[in-house]
Simulated assay, not measured.
Amino acid sequence: MSRTKTYSRFALSLLGAAAAVALSVSAAGTAHAADNKITIIIGGMAKQIYLPAVLAERLGYYKEQGLDVELLDTRAGVEAENELLAGAVQGVVGFYDHSIDLQAKGKYIESVVQFSQAPGEVELVSAKFADQVKSPADLKGKTLGVTGLGSSTDFLTQYLVSRNGLKPGEFALLGVGAGNTFIAAMKQGQIAAGMTTEPTIARMLKTGEAKILVDMRTPETTVAALGGPYPAASLYMATTWVDGHKAETQKLANALVKTLHFIATHSAADIADKMPKDYYAGDRDLYVKGLAEGKAQFTPDGRMPKDGPETVYKVLSSFKKTIQGKQIDLSKTYTTAFVDAAAKQIGAAN
């Protein structure tokens, strides 16, 4: 059995505090009450970049593995990360780059299943500024939207503008979430440009309210924008929890790798049919179009792309003072052990 819930940031904070106090969560995460009950928080459940986590539930793959998975929704990846650190959840569906950022602070998490090999993000510029903003260098003096301060969209935005010559203080960042809140912020002139994902991208392009400035929905366009592959969406977990719950972690990997195989072997329309109808935002055709254009971002097997961690480290260390000068062991920011085992099971089943 699996369940999907939406929690407000305040409710999640209470949940984290309660977990820390009432359960006295240890470093190994031994407070998990039921062996096969796993709570995973997603930094924006309706975002297509995080689609595999919900699709696995819709396909019945968690249940097939004997897992009781609860999916929680929150606005941004940085909020999801905080819930993991508070001990309120066992896993996060968010960007891999958090594992590098946290290791620099002495906290170890790892990508267990790598969903994507590209961010799936686009820097949109408001149609009001499209004539004067032709590259990130033209964003000087502008306010730029990100899902949340400290989020992966924050990281990527800072790198894009710095790579194009802007210095800190020459632009401003504003956390505006995604979907309707992002759209409202741009419509109301709170932001001149912003980073977002499908289906928000397709919605704004259709209305003509925004244009694409930088596209990072495919491996090829990502290399052009960032200088290398950028593994992004993943299931990441505390290393201590993974080490203490290898059987449960393997079952999760089995379900998610099977889901990624489904994505690789089915059309965008077939995948959309499996997703909750409210994720379409009232326009199924537009949802399918966005998914078709960005489907190449997903890995077919959950493995970390070659040279991906190095690119992410290069991006983060270019502007984050907390990482600069620190010795980061990239081999401890991800593991392929579980997805390799899952691949063998899928191969045997086929």
Rank of each mutant, 00 (worst) to 15 (best):
L144I: 15
S135Q: 10
Y61L: 15
A178L: 12
A193F: 07
W241R: 01
L173W: 07
A31C: 13
T74F: 00
V89I: 04
G347V: 08
T200I: 04
G208V: 03
I109F: 05
K274I: 10
G66A: 10
V146Q: 05
G175R: 09
Y287R: 02
G282A: 09
S24Y: 07
T39R: 14
N82F: 12
A193G: 11
N254C: 02
V242E: 01
M45R: 12
Q114G: 01
L173R: 07
Y7M: 10
Q327V: 14
L205C: 05
G141I: 07
V223P: 09
G60K: 10
K320T: 07
A269L: 03
T196V: 09
I100W: 01
T311K: 05
A349N: 10
Y7L: 15
A80R: 02
S135P: 09
V113C: 02
Y108A: 11
L226C: 14
N254H: 03
G150W: 09
D35F: 14
G290Q: 03
G60F: 14
E248I: 00
D307M: 08
L174W: 13
L59C: 11
D243Q: 13
Y334G: 06
L59A: 11
L330M: 14
E123T: 15
G290I: 08
T157W: 02
P219L: 04
D301Q: 03
K167N: 06
